[in-house]
Design a protein around this nucleic acid. Sequence first.
DNA 1: AATGTTAAATTAACGTCGTTAATAAAATAA
DNA 2: TTATTTTATTAACGACGTTAATTTAACATT
Lengths: 213, 213
Amino acid sequence: MPPKIKSEQDREQLRTLILDAARSLFVERGIEAVSMREIAKQIKYSATTLYNYFQDKEALLQAVCDADFLALASGMREIMQIPDPIQRIQALCRGYAKFALHHPGHYRFMFMTPRGPCNMDITHIEQGNTEQDAYAQLQAVVQAAFDAELFRADLNDSELIVQTLWAGVHGVCSLQIALGNEIWMQWTDIDARLSLMQNALLRGLLRQPDRIF
Amino acid sequence: MPPKIKSEQDREQLRTLILDAARSLFVERGIEAVSMREIAKQIKYSATTLYNYFQDKEALLQAVCDADFLALASGMREIMQIPDPIQRIQALCRGYAKFALHHPGHYRFMFMTPRGPCNMDITHIEQGNTEQDAYAQLQAVVQAAFDAELFRADLNDSELIVQTLWAGVHGVCSLQIALGNEIWMQWTDIDARLSLMQNALLRGLLRQPDRIF
DNA sequence: AATGTTAAATTAACGTCGTTAATAAAATAA
DNA sequence: TTATTTTATTAACGACGTTAATTTAACATT
């Protein structure tokens, strides 16, 4: 039996040990292919120990994703410094898509898997905090472009624009994750798909479509 | 023990009985919440009997989805009669989205769940047949619009346009299915999201954006 | 230093799942 | 009537998430 954890510091250390083990299995195999027993075995603890640190499997995976999406949002901060709002939107979408395609397990768990109606108690990302939440970042930059009257005059709901842009990028990414390896689909190049989605959407939303190439 | 099935006709009848039972559970609960044992119980057979009619659970669910997506494509045939290609695209997208949102379990299984690389042997929908395959229907009408030179001159790949349009609609639908009930998201109206997606994409793709309202 | 108490780990167990092997029973053929 | 074949059944396997019961290590008290 391993030495017991008493101090709050050591406890946090074991917690992140579990998170790391879960992450590695979570990343290399798909998602539900990772079992509590296997995570525990990897760190040489019994499976039930995990339940002293996480309420259940879903909470564990949620914690993994929370941490990594926090890292994503943090990595986006320099993009948020780009002065031109349109370029900022484009860079943000590209960064978001890149993360999604490089972390398909994470992305699937976060955005492609229906949950019970309320997860507020599990996730620890403070919603609406631009520093932390990737969605809020897109929200902020779209609002900036909206305030600068860059969007079509008949589009009067900034939130609707945000969600449309998100849905567009999400559509490309999630299709790639779910069906990207299907033989019967003759996919065009994923970068081309992403580019055209951004290009077409912005052209269709902006007051001056010619600004987008 | 129920009477045994010998004739090919009765065999097909029991097969569809299984399919119907699976469909009903599949529709009312989510997706993986339906077990083989429960399907069997509903039709008063033992669980192992199902394996005489379907290779495994995935094949059963795939058969359910195949049948219903065939029905979808069939129901789209009148839409395919609309003369104007642009209106045809719009109607097709609306019909597709309507089906997706009314059959979230089907949709999730078909388009939001990664599979092993090869499912060709399971699905019985003949790919490329406009009558049967919803994707091929979109492909056909986009090709028509492409041939009529309705898209921007710099867009030279019709397949890329198809996949972008699909990804857009899929993005809205799949986000709604996966996260539509999340409390922390303040979703705008789903119809507005769908409309704006189609509107913006077509405006961004077409040579004459003003044709789209 | 010996004892008791608390907290953290363990093993055992429950119920469920998809699926396969072994078996019983019904229909058909001889 | 018996033998054969097909179709269903029950039993069982291994894995899963999770909870209950139990052991064990660390700390506190005398």
